[in-house]
Design a protein around this nucleic acid. Structure first.
Lengths: 359, 359
DNA sequence: ATTTAGCACTTGAATTCAATGAGTGCTAAA
DNA sequence: TTTAGCACTCATTGAATTCAAGTGCTAAAT
């Protein structure tokens, strides 16, 4: 399938665009009679019918049944998105709504993404998605200990992702300053910059020996703490806002279809898969079966990633029926994601919730 | 409305129970003919009809239309739950499934609750909910600082909820040990155990003066950090698992009804309201309009809270149509929540994700 | 005083049928 | 190449009909 922009006569393009525009707005199949009254130039319905049937042969249009008007095919939408649609002009109100978000004082990426999803959902009237990718730290780069009095001390861990994690360690017995220092040294020697999976039991017992009897019982809880830190932070998050909005579209009045999609949104992994394999720094549009998840054959997914140091840390987008207001949705996502990306680049956003930085 | 258990003849109770049991299983209205064949004693359909019409007068049954069988009213379900239903016996498989969770190594309450929701959803085939209430810290009880080298130090804050929060503070200028100590002292003097809202601007400038010119620029970012710590941790979480399962029930084949419920689940505040005003340490059952949220008139909400030191820290439950397998659902929630509560009481669970304790 | 058989009645669901009308494809004329 | 004209298709609508399930009531039976 490879119809180029130039393969179509201007009149065909005009007709195709008019059909898709009308169908996006109204949701109904578009017939030749309607078009005679709504085209910039005036041609007869018969001519339009001829053109339509040729567009259908090209795979750009479809007919639900013989006596119905035409409906865009997935491929038609694709052509529309690539070449036909004209870019959407935001209204003042919409711009205002969008800017409110970026002007807010929120600094955490999580919250910004969710806020963006909310706004996008409201403006476009589809379901919004917010993805938050956590780059899980692979190693601890530095350990520090800090007394907290009364049989506790704080274990501070710096991770390879530059975040700081802490864990309170209780010790029922006395711990001299000197012992604590020794413990810190041992941790830094054995557990820094190493993949925890590769730490062997014999190494652990070696640590227990080296650190001395008075700190040895702490080794194993500490190792567990390290393990938690390296694993817990790393769960990706994918959230949806306004799922109920999908139900307003006749495409999902078939409960079965909707249920499938809802299931996919709950399972998340399929969609996470799509998002994480997407192109960076541009708007990704998956129309119908273009995304390989067959449950989403009737839906379109549009999103754009947010990156930090060239690594994907998030994404915002919408999900809805293939009959979607592509122009508006793409413009909205573009605007919002660019703004968020800018905040990210100018370091105004804090990537993690665990640690926060400040200048 | 106050029908006592003893107000009904044994035969009426038997008939009512049989009707509700059958309706829960089959979803269809139950007629007199069916009952003649499915009652422990044998009575004629005419007699049953008489009894049924009396039960209807009492408000325990309803008729969808004249020529249909009877269906339990909300009040009928209530009576059933209170007095009629017999407690469900778990199968070996179910017990196994349930125990797998509590035997798992997971230690964080969040994860246990979500895991419980998953299991509950699978077992009961309704939508499960997991609530995680965060007791937001009200004050900071202690500040500590810790050098991290290269123009940064770590600000460690102990909160009134006994959790530890940290914030990395960058300083572009030199900071002597002595200055850092002074800063720590000032923070502990001015910001410990005080409600941040009550800190005045003049107090802040006093802090800046007292701490000296070389640390003064750090005061305001630190105050902001404290503010974040006191506010951010405190957002309650309410998650649902298996929302798509609701769509299998004919009660929600009306898209409008389902959409309303879905909306309520997304907005969350109504349901949060119900959960947070519920009774502690017992199973709460809200049948249809018993919960004041009118959008949930067709749904039943069942849950039980998890407490720690007598404060509600979480809840698990299910949401589904009024026609629900109460017996099984209640048994499942009871079993799971008791187990989780036990883990909580025996201190095996870590309440927060921010700080972790270890013995 | 209950219980039951019998029967007329109600009502939603399913089925059929015809009418409607939107829209097409095709042919032949412009 | 375009267009008017016309026959044809097919989903939708609504009315009429049948069907079956289930009730309420009455009168007889226990």
């Amino acid at each position: 399938m490879g119809i180029e922009f130039s393969d179509l006569s201007d009149r065909k393009k005009m007709i195709l665009k008019a059909i898709i525009d009308a169908h996006i707005r109204g949701g109904e199949p578009v017939g030749s009679k309607y078009l005679t009254q709504n085209l910039p130039i005036s041609i007869s319905s018969a001519t339009i019918r001829n053109e339509m049937s040729e567009l259908e042969e090209l795979g750009l249009l479809e007919q639900p049944h013989t006596s119905a008007g035409r409906v865009p095919s997935e491929y038609g939408y694709r052509f529309y998105v690539n070449s036909l649609m004209k870019s959407y002009e935001m209204t003042m109100n919409e711009l205002q709504e969008l800017n409110r978000l970026t002007k807010s004082k929120v600094e955490r990426l999580d919250e910004i993404l969710e806020g963006a999803a909310q706004v996008m959902g409201n403006l476009t009237n589809y379901t919004a998605l917010a993805f938050r990718g956590r780059n899980r730290a692979t190693v601890i780069t530095q350990f520090k200990t800090m007394r907290m009095g009364m049989g506790k001390f704080l274990l501070v861990m710096m991770t390879s992702e530059e975040s700081v994690q802490t864990k309170v360690i209780n010790h029922s017995f006395e711990l001299s300053d000197e012992t604590l220092e020794r413990l810190e040294a041992v941790l830094n020697r054995y557990l820094c910059n190493v993949n925890l999976e590769s730490v062997t039991l014999s190494e652990i017992s070696e640590m227990e020996r080296v650190v001395g009897y008075d700190a040895a019982p702490l080794i194993s809880p500490i190792v567990k703490g390290v393990y938690d830190v390296l694993n817990q932070g790393g769960s990706d998050e994918l959230k949806f806002a306004g799922v109920d909005r999908l139900l307003q579209y006749p495409e999902f009045s078939d409960v079965g279809k909707f249920r499938q999609l809802l299931g996919a949104m709950e399972k998340k992994d399929d969609i996470l898969d799509i998002v994480s394999h997407s192109k960076k720094d541009e708007i990704n549009v998956y129309i119908g079966s273009e995304n390989s998840v067959d449950v989403m054959n009737n839906s379109t997914l549009i999103f754009r990633t947010i990156t930090q140091n060239d690594k994907v840390v998030g994404a915002i987008g919408v999900i809805g029926p293939c009959r979607m207001d592509y122009s508006k949705v793409i413009a909205t996502i573009d605007y919002l994601s660019r703004n968020i990306q800018q905040m990210m680049d100018s370091d105004k956003l804090l990537p993690g919730s665990e640690s926060e930085e400040n200048k």
